[in-house]
Design a protein around this nucleic acid. Structure first.
Lengths: 238, 238
DNA sequence: ATGGTTTGCTTCAAAGTTGCCACAATTCTT
DNA sequence: AAGAATTGTGGCAACTTTGAAGCAAACCAT
C-alpha cells in the first residue's frame, strides 16, 4: 500500500528536494506552499504522514500542528531553521512526533520517514499499545511520567531529570519489559545521525539509576549483558 | 566485505589525514587530487561512499556531487572551509547526504562514515525482510523466545541467556525437530570464518542445558552421537 | 559575559562471558 | 570385553563488557 505524505514549506527548493527524495523511495508526495493549504487538503483526504515547516507565511507550522492534532493522530515531522531546545520542546509538546533542524540532509529525512512507518507498522502488530503519542500520564510501577511537562515522579516525589534522562526513561517505559539494545537507544534518543559513542547511553543510565535510587523508587534499570538495558522491579528488601 | 571509499581534496595533508584515519578503521580508501579524477574512477569502479571537498581546482565539489547523483545514489559527504548557510543548503540541494565544515575532527568524520554504513545496513535488513524476521515471539513447548530483545522465557520464568546461548537456542528452535550438525552451528552462530574449536558448541550447549534445567523447562537438548544436537522434550517426571 | 548544569569522554576497576583443557563418563567398534 | 572415539564436567584464564569517578567542553538561563 502506497503511503501518502503531505509536506508544507514556503521555500520551493526545499519542497521539491524533499518531494523528489521521498518519491524516489516510492512514497506518494503532495507538496503545499503553506500550512493552511495542507490543512485544507488534509480535511478532505487525510494522509499517512505530514512534514511541516515551522516558518511559513500565514499560520506557522506550530499552529497547523496543533490544528492537525485536534482532528488526527497522523505522524508529524517538523522542520525548522531555529536550533533551540525551546523550539524542540514546544514542537514536541504540541504533538509533533519528530523534529528536523535546517539545514538537514534529505536522505536522513527520508530514512526517518521510513523509520516512522516501520515503527507504526510494528505498533499496529502488537495493537495492545496504541500509543496515541500524547497520553497525559504514563505510569509504570511507582513511576509517573508526564510527557507534556517533561516531568516524572517516583513515589510521588518529583524526579529532577534532564532532557536526555527524561527521554531515555520515557522510551524505556513505553517499551516496558522489553530489553532495549544500546544502538536502539542511540538511534531513538540521540538520533540516527548522532556521532556519540555507544557508551554515552551508559552515562545517562548511570545518572538515571542514581536519581531513581535516591528517590527510593522500586524501579530498576537492569543491564542485559552485551546488549542493552531493561526495566525491572527491585525486590522488597527483606 | 570491505567498504570502498573515494575521497577528493586538493590539499594533500587533508587527503592523507582522512585516508589514514579511515584505513585504520578497516576501510579501503582511494584518494584523488581533484573531483574530476574521482568521478572518472567512479565511472569505472563505483565505491560505497564518497567524500568531496567543495573548493577544488577544476570542477567544484558541488558540480561533482551533481554529476555523481545523476548516475548513482552513493552516499556523499561534503567538506568545506566555508561555513555559510548558503553553501550548506546548496550542498544538500545537490544531493549530498552530509556535510562537514573545516576544520573538522578526523575522528568525528570517521564515526559519521561508520554511522552511515550502519544505517544503510539496517535499512537493507529491514527492507529485505519486513515481516519474516519480525516475528515478535517464537514458541516451542514451554519456551518462548523474543528475538528482538535477547529475551527468552521457560515456563514463564525468564531465562538469563548470553548472546551466544540465545543465538544457539533460537537457531535450534527455528529448526525444531531437526538434528543439527556441530559444523552447521559453528557456521551459523560463530560464522564461517571463525577459528574456534568444534567443541565450543559443546560448551554453549552445556551452559544452555544447565540454565534450562534450572528453570525447570521440559525442553531438552539431546545429543546426536557423532553428529550434533536435536531438541527434545523431557518425560513428565514420575 | 558568567556561573551553574548537563553531558560525553577517559581511565580504571569490577563483573560477566567464553573457549580451552584435563579428565571422567559414555557410546561405538571389533 | 577391550580399545577407540566421542561427549559431559568442572575449572580456569583471557577477553569483553560494564560501572564509577573525575573532568572538560558544551550548553543554558541570567
Amino acid at each position: 500500500m502506497e503511503k501518502i505524505i503531505y509536506i508544507a514549506d514556503d521555500e520551493i527548493n526545499i519542497r521539491n528536494l524533499v518531494k523528489a527524495f521521498l518519491e524516489k523511495e516510492g512514497f506518494c508526495v503532495h507538496a503545499f506552499a503553506t500550512g493552511d493549504l495542507l490543512f485544507d487538503a488534509f480535511k478532505n483526504a487525510p494522509c499517512d504522514l505530514v512534514i511541516l515547516d515551522v516558518m511559513m507565511p500565514g499560520n506557522s507550522g506550530f499552529i497547523i500542528c496543533t490544528k492537525l492534532r485536534e482532528i488526527s493522530a497522523v505522524p508529524i515531522i517538523m522542520l525548522t531553521a531555529k536550533d533551540t531546545e525551546d523550539d524542540y520542546v514546544s514542537g514536541l509538546a504540541l504533538g509533533s512526533d519528530d523534529y528536523f533542524t535546517k539545514p538537514f540532509s534529505p536522505m536522513k529525512l527520508t530514512m526517518r520517514v521510513k523509520a516512522m512507518f516501520r515503527r507504526a507498522a510494528m505498533d499496529a502488530q502488537n495493537n495492545n499499545a496504541p500509543k496515541t503519542a500524547q497520553a497525559d500520564e504514563i505510569i509504570f510501577e511507582d513511576i509517573k511520567i508526564m510527557p507534556n511537562m517533561l516531568t516524572a515522579y517516583a513515589q510521588d516525589k518529583m524526579l529532577n531529570l534532564t532532557k536526555t534522562e527524561f527521554k531515555l526513561l520515557a522510551y524505556m517505559i513505553e517499551n516496558q519489559g522489553k530489553a532495549i539494545a544500546r544502538q536502539e537507544l542511540l538511534n531513538t534518543i540521540w538520533g540516527y545521525d548522532s556521532i556519540v559513542e555507544t557508551r554515552a547511553t551508559d552515562d545517562t543510565v548511570k545518572r538515571l539509576r542514581r536519581k531513581l535510587s535516591e528517590a527510593g523508587s522500586k524501579l530498576s534499570i537492569d543491564t542485559v549483558w552485551g546488549f542493552g538495558f531493561k526495566l525491572g522491579v527491585k525486590k522488597e528488601g527483606v
